[in-house]
Design a protein around this nucleic acid. Structure first.
Lengths: 161, 161
DNA sequence: CATATAATGGACATTACAGGTCCATAATAA
DNA sequence: TTATTATGGACCTGTAATGTCCATTATATG
């Protein structure tokens, strides 16, 4: 299990947009050369971010992208959910369309002492709660807060032009 | 990003082993029929769990698997790390062998105000910390605790044979 | 010892999906 | 009108997850 590269690219792209002066559009060329990603691939990612309302895009000359709202209002969770999808990280096998284990044996097979799968499943409860811990953290951190963090302990590269 | 099916199978297999009487070996046939997985596939998973010391296996007649230590000493994190690997969930693209963005421009291009990637990267700091939140939760929950949880709110299926 | 049982590990097949490219189209500023 | 720039569809590719098969090893039992 790994976060996709798309998420890494998306997060970094938003960091760049947050840094650029407000009102100025940043083109895909600039973004892709800064991040070392191809224009075609990165534009797919930016497109998703736009569809979900995280960035605005304007086509044509001097077009490009800018944040759709303040960097302090864009959480890491927002970005992750757009680029990784909103399904749960954990599913008890056969994504719920599968009949429960004890269907043909209506009580005559004592050697299958099964707990409930799917929703009531204690394994799923733990895994979902674990995911929640992570998501809560991601929701508490924004593009802006990460930017501040970078500015404080990493001031040498964050020189303001 | 999703947990693999292997993790789901592995966790449930351990739950079954924890339920079975101590000292009794549970064979792959029994496990696979209970979980609805093929014997061949599930045995691969069990093999991994054995190599990492979570279960013991004995070959031959009456052989099978049992927990290598108390169910209360096997955390969800243990299982996840065996079956998902121990790499970080997040990597800043091109796993650190890539030169930093500002290499050809030794100070003459003010339009690439880049922060450090890799270790110092503020994005990675947030993502790693988020992962840590999840892992901490997984470490605090064990096969035994999940079993208890199941017993309390799901007692109808957890009848002791 | 012989036999049935059962896990192991290697090799291999299959599938799904992330990663990545290309191109035709639409929108916009100059 | 033209150059620029994002969009979205189609498509290709590599790799990892999933899954099967088989020969081997180990063990209990008769």
């Amino acid at each position: 299990m790994q976060f996709s590269k798309s998420t890494a690219y998306g997060l970094h792209a938003l960091m760049l947009l947050a840094k650029s002066e407000r009102g100025r559009n940043v083109g895909i060329k600039e973004l892709s050369s800064s991040l070392g990603a191809s224009e075609s691939y990165l534009s797919k990612i930016m497109s998703k971010l736009r569809q979900d309302g995280l960035v605005r895009a304007v086509t044509g000359v001097n077009g490009g992208y800018e944040l759709a709202r303040a960097a302090s209002e864009i959480t890491f969770l927002d970005v992750v959910q757009v680029l990784e999808g909103r399904q749960h990280l954990y599913e008890c096998f056969h994504g719920s369309d599968h009949p429960l284990p004890s269907l043909e044996a209506a009580g005559d097979e004592p050697e299958t002492p099964e707990f409930a799968f799917g929703e009531g499943c204690p394994v799923k409860q733990v895994m979902d709660a674990a995911e929640l811990q992570m998501n809560r953290y991601l929701q508490q951190h924004t593009i802006q807060s990460a930017l501040n963090q970078a500015g404080s302990c990493d001031a040498h590269t964050a020189s303001k032009k």
